[in-house]
């Protein structure tokens, strides 16, 4: 038996199994962890297809960044909280089933029509061909570190600004609410408690 088939089988079982387990897990943290397992298994199938970049992004972005955010929010709201199982929006379930069925139909349709339908007339092994020269990841890396070097670096500055900004806004306020400056009473009550300091 081909090793690829084995790997695909394993990732298939893991992805499907953890997806189903997600639906039945009671604990929000467990649901998030099952989602991680499903994402990693999906990344594995991307690898099998030769889509190395998407596999890496799948793990870094979905399994990494977004899941950390999910878990963060879950922890923030309290792990122990029991979720109410009443639907806030009526008819939500029916719509979900309908949309899910539509998505499944689309996937089956594309699968039956074959890859030509998706990636044009470039045949079954289009991805493999693209990967050969010079390679998906390599091509991206080259663009990123040559022509797009400046945007790449500018993004890092942008991220630093965002981090500094978050720090400023989230910092404990301390006593900065108490203003020290000799002015008139502002016509307000209570806010300026320390107008005794001379200017």
């Amino acid at each position: 038996m081909n090793i690829e088939v084995v790997v695909f089988g394993v990732s298939f079982v893991v992805a499907l199994g953890s997806s189903i387990a997600m639906l039945f897990a009671k604990n929000a943290v467990h649901v998030a962890l099952f989602l991680v397992a499903a994402q990693v298994a999906l990344a594995l199938t991307f690898l099998l297809q030769g889509a190395y970049f998407i596999a890496a992004v799948q793990i870094i972005v979905y399994a990494g960044a977004i899941m950390v955010l999910f878990l963060f929010v879950v922890m923030l709201l309290g792990v122990d909280r029991r979720e109410a199982l009443i639907e806030p929006l009526s008819g939500q379930r029916t719509i979900a089933v309908g949309l899910g069925a539509l998505l499944a139909a689309e996937i089956v349709y594309v699968a039956v029509k074959g890859t030509e339908f998706v990636i044009g007339g470039r045949g079954e092994d289009a991805l493999v061909t693209i990967n050969e020269d010079p390679g998906n990841v390599k091509a991206l890396a080259r663009a990123l570190f040559s022509d797009y070097l400046l945007p790449f670096e500018a993004t890092s500055v942008l991220l630093v600004v965002a981090i500094v900004g978050v720090m400023v806004l989230a910092r404990r306020m301390g006593h900065e609410g108490f203003l020290r400056e000799t002015t008139e009473d502002e016509g307000s009550e209570g806010a300026e408690t320390d107008a005794e300091v001379p200017a």
Partner: peptide, 13 residues
């Protein structure tokens, strides 16, 4: 300074 607020991040921003 008059309002006794942190300065470092202000200048950096």
């Amino acid at each position: 300074v008059r309002r006794d607020l942190e300065e470092g991040e202000f200048f950096a921003l």
